[in-house]
Structures are given as C-alpha cells and as structure tokens.
C-alpha cells in the first residue's frame, strides 16, 4: 500500500518548500544588472548645480560606491552614520544619488548629519533610478573601476554587511587590477 509512502512524501516536499520560504525575504528582488555595465547618466550635482556628475566620473579605475538616498527614506537615516564613518576611514570613494527628493531638505541633511559623498547627483524625476533598476532606497551599488556593477545591496548598510559583503569584493577588485 504505497499511499502510506506517497502522502507523507508529498507532505515532506511541501514542508521543504515552506521551510525554504520562511528564510527568504520576498521583498528582495535580485538585480539583473550585476556584472553589467552601469547605465549611463549625467545629472546636476546637489551642492554645485551648475556642474554635473556622470558615469564617467565613477569609472576612475578605482572601485567606488553609488548610494541611492533621500531625506524621506528612513533606512537612509539609519545607514548615514556608517557612510560618514566609511568616508572618514577612507575605505572607498562614495557617490550619492539623491532620489526624488527636495533639494533644500537634502542639502540641510548633509549639513546636519555630515556629507560622506565625494559628490551627489540629483535625480529629481527618478529616471536615472529606473535605469539603474532602483525600487527602494537605500540601495548601494559597488562599481569596479571600469563602470561595471559588481554588487548591489538593498536596504540600510550595517557594519556587519559591510565587512561580510563589501570588503571581500572590494579587496578582490583591487587585487584583480594590480
């Protein structure tokens, strides 16, 4: 009587699906842009609106971060201290993409909390963010020196994530170059 085998087997398979599902975050959508050339852009800078920031500025030969942030984003406030810290430690040049934000509020935010960015581009209407596949701030892209996206983190950065996900990748990029 193999219904006594089949039914429990089906049950266990189903249980396996549910168990895997428990430990996955369905709000994280993996980006198809990893290991692809970053989409080109050219946007005015937040602090010097007469100058622009573009993809060419990010492809300097050194790995860089592009951090998507906004003053309306709670997670951005959470990670901001760490970004300031990373900039002070001189770990990696960080560029900002200010996403659908109010310029005045954004400038005030940087004055009040510190400015970790080499430069911040203003994406007022969100077109560049769509081009980069951004769907929720904060998002942090790791680019190699040639303007290729190597990694993307969705959600606030923490020291732990920095050490685990970013440090080894940056080290590998630097090693591969020299």
């Amino acid at each position: 009587m193999w219904r006594f085998v089949l039914v429990p087997a089906a049950f266990i398979v189903l249980l396996g699906f549910f168990l895997v599902g428990l430990f996955r975050d369905p709000t994280l959508v993996p980006s198809p842009l990893i290991n692809q050339p970053a989409p080109a852009f050219e946007l005015p800078q937040l602090l010097e609106p007469e100058r622009t920031l573009g993809l060419a500025d990010l492809a300097t030969g050194e790995p860089v971060l592009l951090n998507v942030w906004a003053t309306w984003c709670v997670g951005c406030r959470q990670e901001h201290g760490l970004l300031v810290d990373l900039a002070r430690r001189g770990e990696i040049p960080i560029y900002g993409l200010n996403w659908k934000d109010d310029n005045e509020a954004a400038i005030h935010w940087l004055q009040r909390l510190g400015d970790p960015y080499v430069s911040t581009a203003v994406d007022a209407d969100g077109r560049v963010a769509i081009d980069w596949g951004v769907y929720g701030a904060p998002e942090t892209f790791l680019l190699d020196g040639q303007g290729i996206i190597r990694y993307k983190h969705i959600g606030p950065l923490t020291e732990d994530i920095w050490q685990r996900e970013f440090r080894p990748r940056i080290a590998a990029l630097q090693q591969g170059r020299s």
Partner: peptide, 22 residues
C-alpha cells in the same frame, strides 16, 4: 516592486507612477 502584489496600474507608490510615465 514596492507593493509587490499590485500592478502599477493600481499602485499609489511614487515608483509605480514613474514606471507608468516610462
């Protein structure tokens, strides 16, 4: 992608409105 069980036709999220514009 913000409110994942809604098509962009029904969503009030700013990203959905940007995607509709696109």
């Amino acid at each position: 992608l913000v409110c994942q069980n809604e098509p962009i036709a029904d969503s009030n999220a700013p990203l959905a409105s940007d995607l509709r514009r696109e």
